[in-house]
Design a binder for these strands. Structure first.
Lengths: 248, 248
DNA sequence: CGCAATGTGCGCACACCGTACGCTACGATG
DNA sequence: CATCGTAGCGTACGGTGTGCGCACATTGCG
């Protein structure tokens, strides 16, 4: 025995193998964070819970990430990479290409509804490589449609703002439904009395609410979204000459 | 000295006047919360700090508000009350009325930029009395323009989604600037190297960035916002008959 | 006039959060 | 083999939201 090291008397295999997991790295942290967020939502993301999932202590993460806000920036940019943007030479025409962007962006947000809670802190205005890359491709789409560079930027921002605004509210709604543990229909049913009470003295809202009662909420959301996209494309179309040279 | 912990030893005026302040109430709590948020931003709002400002303990607030989330819902609805919505009989025509709503909503968000961080949790879809009232008035505007009830709802949601998306990102950006303690110009200047690096290999973004360099950022934001509003109104216009009967 | 009921504010305590700091032990390099 | 940079960890601090039960003011009722 003898034990020259008081702090550690004689536990058998003191050193205890360490490198079994592929070790921590920024990429592993970000992708595990996304998995956690998708599975359990924004309020389940803490440095401790994320560390545990990675088989590490909470503070170990700070070797790879400056702080939680930076982690969230990284996560958001990673997610932007999922959006699909057609090439500017796509033969389907600018309207189809831009509409595809819009629907792809919506699908991305609905796959990761927690970004609704996070976009307000991060803004869109950031410099992440994925966001930059996608913006460049999308801008190419608008320029190919015939918008001059300055207006292409405005047109793109208009569409993106719409999609973000619409889907953010959709995602926030779906997050609430998810937190309630009920199906969307059951949830809508459960707050029907409150809703009817709230619109009682507002005939236009009341009628609209009643009219939508019998329809499938998911389909309504999709139709409303598409309606807005089409109107915005109509509005942008009026700014292009009567016949655009390249986009036929 | 002697026994300061006896139930009531004999401090002179034991009862100690209490009701000097107009007492706590939901309204007082909500409006003080808004003052705090406007002055110090979202991360400064804690139940403790709010309680202190009201001359009360943190947990006293819970007599009037179920929890912090509910407080935020109340705060958001209160803010919606600030938006101005013209009456449907306004002689200026539907386009002017709707555009006024859009600009009024933007002004409201920029007055209270912290709502950007909060809308993602609350969504738009709520039942607060102010939001309901404003929606009803706005819906009237669209119906008076000639949209049938179902489409009026879609048109309104399109416009609101755009305004929320655009201003949310603007507000998030302005919050960052504010946190940095610099002016907008100084801030833009300070991250110019990073921005130029980020757009280096993306010619369209690079040119756009360079072109905006010399202009007033605030004016650019306003112009971009107005551009989107006009395009959306153009797009909605195409859905109305060539001449609408009532709106001349 | 006295008393019970009601509701308001508060102090305490708990569990959890982000993260600063300094230690250990390992892999690479001389 | 000696040295050193660095990844990961344990501990600790100051802060958070909020449940609980007590003390008190006010009010309605006999």
């Amino acid at each position: 025995m003898a034990a020259e090291k008081q702090p550690i008397p004689s536990v058998w295999a003191r050193p205890r193998a360490k490198r079994e997991q592929p070790a921590l790295s920024r990429d592993r942290i970000v992708s595990e964070a996304i998995r956690l967020l998708d599975a359990e939502g924004i309020e389940a993301l803490s440095m401790r819970s994320l560390g545990t999932r990675l088989g590490a202590g909470a503070t170990s993460l700070y070797r790879h990430v400056a702080n939680k806000d930076e982690l969230i920036e990284l996560v958001v940019d990673e997610i932007y990479g999922e959006m699909g943007v057609p090439g500017a030479d796509d033969p389907a025409g600018w309207r189809a290409g831009v509409a595809a962007c819009a629907h792809s962006l919506r699908a991305m947000v609905l796959r990761h509804p927690w970004i609704a809670s996070v976009l307000g802190q991060v803004g869109l205005a950031y410099l992440g490589p994925n966001l930059i890359r996608q913006s460049e491709r999308m801008l190419a789409l608008f320029q190919a449609a015939g918008f001059d560079p300055g207006e292409a930027d405005q047109a793109m921002n208009t569409l993106i703002a719409y999609v973000i605004g619409m889907t953010t509210s959709e995602a926030a709604y779906l997050s609430m439904v998810a937190r309630s543990g009920q199906s969307e229909q059951a949830w809508a049913e459960s707050l029907r009395p409150a809703a009817e009470q709230a619109v009682r003295d507002h005939p236009r809202l009341r009628d609209g609410y009643a009219a939508r009662q019998s329809e499938d909420p998911q389909q309504i959301r999709e139709e409303n979204f598409s309606y807005g996209v089409e109107r915005i494309l109509d509005g942008l179309d009026t700014r292009l000459g009567p016949t655009t040279p390249a986009a036929r």
